[in-house]
């Protein structure tokens, strides 16, 4: 395995999130009825950052939460049982809202599929959209993102690792060969 190569640095991540926040405001006409739900752990952190920006730009408070997908994964039986993440819905729930799912990396699309199943048990949103920091390709399911921070062409054998200040002490996206 060779040296990890940084594909996004702190300022790049900052700019990408700023753009996504603007795009969400634009597409949802002022984030009216929007709920941001992050997939733990890093998706939840990104959702919180997007909400902060949306509030800065247009002075609207968007409800934020997290949605754990562990119990809905299709690969549970391939590994020992894993610890659960936190599911935290905003007080008003998600019924009749536009849910924007937020995750760090979009790869096979299986996590998003699991998140859609989990949403189904939690309520009935009017629409579901997907915001992603890095789309690395190699989809195995018919899923695409509505908001993408960066499209990153990768080979299947490479690994993409996202580091965020809140959990890892620094902001970076690295590609490991």
């Amino acid at each position: 395995m060779s040296e990890p190569r940084a594909v996004l640095e702190g300022p790049d991540i900052h700019r990408a999130l700023t753009r996504i926040a603007h795009e969400i405001l634009e597409r949802t006409k002022g984030a009216d009825g929007v709920v941001l739900l992050g997939i733990p752990t890093r998706g939840a952190t990104l959702a919180a950052r997007l909400a902060e920006r949306i509030e800065q730009f247009e002075d609207v408070k968007v409800p934020v939460g997290s949605i754990d997908i562990t119990m809905y994964r299709d690969d549970l039986r391939l590994r020992p049982a894993r610890p659960l993440g936190r599911t935290d819905l905003p007080a008003d729930g998600i019924d009749g809202r536009t849910v924007v799912l937020v995750d760090d990396v979009l790869f096979s699309g299986r996590s998003v599929r699991a998140a859609l199943d989990a949403l189904n048990d939690l309520g009935r949103p009017t629409a579901v959209q997907l915001a992603i920091l890095v789309d690395r390709g190699h989809r195995e399911l018919p899923i695409r993102a509505d908001y993408v921070g960066k499209n990153l062409p990768t080979s299947k054998s490479e690994k993409v690792k996202v580091y965020l200040e809140e959990t890892d002490g620094r902001d970076a996206v690295e590609l490991i060969k």
Binding site: D68, M71, Y72, P83, G85, D117, D121, L122
Partner: peptide, 23 residues
């Protein structure tokens, strides 16, 4: 501690209207 932490997350499922997981 893993069992207790897992239970802590699962306790939230009992508060939902659909109390079922497909796991």
């Amino acid at each position: 501690l893993l069992i207790l932490d897992t239970a802590e997350e699962l306790a939230r499922v009992s508060e939902r209207s659909i109390k079922k997981l497909p796991t």
